[in-house]
Simulated assay, not measured.
Amino acid sequence: MKSLPLLLTATCLLMCSCQSAYYGAMEKFGVHKRDILVDRVEDAREAQEEAKEQFESAFEEFLAVSEVDVSQLKVTYDRLQAAFDDSESKANAVKSRIEAIEEVSEALFKEWEGELDQYTSKELRAVSAGQLESTQKLSKNLIQAMDSAASKMDPVLNAFRDQVLFLKHNLNAQAIAALNKTSLALRDEVEVLIKQMEASIDEANAFVAQMRSE
């Protein structure tokens, strides 16, 4: 057990080393951390847009169960399972994109703060420090918006999973009635999720626009 902290430390050091090597290699091609950050925010925005569309589509699939004939429940189950799998995959992609943004923003700001001491002009240093603070606030707001939207995905995914499992275990008329009731109850949670994701997408758009204007 004592070796576990050492293993974790070694893993972290290796990851940091790999990240530094990656950023260093990219800079040799003229691609700086700031550029990588903007690209990753754009990737996260696209992932959120795809997830938003998938969750809306999946919810419609679950609502449609009430109109399905009992003889078609097996086919319906397969369709709902696929919709759930796609939703879970899109949700994981969003979370992965957020982690990538946090990683590069941390590296960017650490580098930026260190380089402030290299200025000989107090005026230029003050301007750069102000830009750093502004960019940090933008990044913080963006990540908070994305995390807030991401946190709303899990309850909806859990509800989707419950319905898929229930239908799998109960391919009968009672299952249709039960799923219709729970799907309708889920409507508010889905609507909140969609609004949160739209707000997060807007935040990403604002971040990219601001970064590209500087």
Rank of each mutant, 00 (worst) to 15 (best):
I194C: 07
V38F: 08
K122P: 04
F166S: 00
I143Y: 10
F29W: 04
F59C: 07
D85S: 02
Q174N: 03
A150D: 13
K95C: 05
Q72P: 00
S96A: 09
A100M: 10
E46M: 15
A204E: 06
L157H: 10
L184E: 11
A178M: 12
S66E: 14
K28T: 05
A83F: 11
P5Y: 11
F109A: 03
N205I: 01
R161C: 02
F166Q: 01
K168F: 07
E56C: 06
A58I: 01
S183D: 02
V190M: 02
L124E: 12
V65A: 02
E115A: 06
V41G: 05
V190S: 06
A177G: 10
T182Q: 13
C12I: 04
I143V: 15
Y22H: 05
A185F: 09
I36P: 01
N158Y: 14
A44G: 10
V94C: 12
V164Y: 01
A199V: 11
A126P: 06
E123G: 00
G24K: 06
S71L: 14
E27D: 04
E88H: 10
D117W: 05
C18D: 08
K2Q: 04
N141H: 07
F59Q: 09
A185T: 03
D43K: 13
G114Q: 15
L167N: 02
R79H: 11
Y22E: 11
R161P: 02
Q118R: 12
E123I: 05
L171S: 00
E50Q: 15
V156M: 01
E214Y: 08
Q144L: 13
A185C: 04
C18A: 15
F166C: 03
T135E: 00
A204W: 01
D78Q: 10
R45I: 08
D78F: 10
M146Y: 00
K140W: 05
T76G: 11
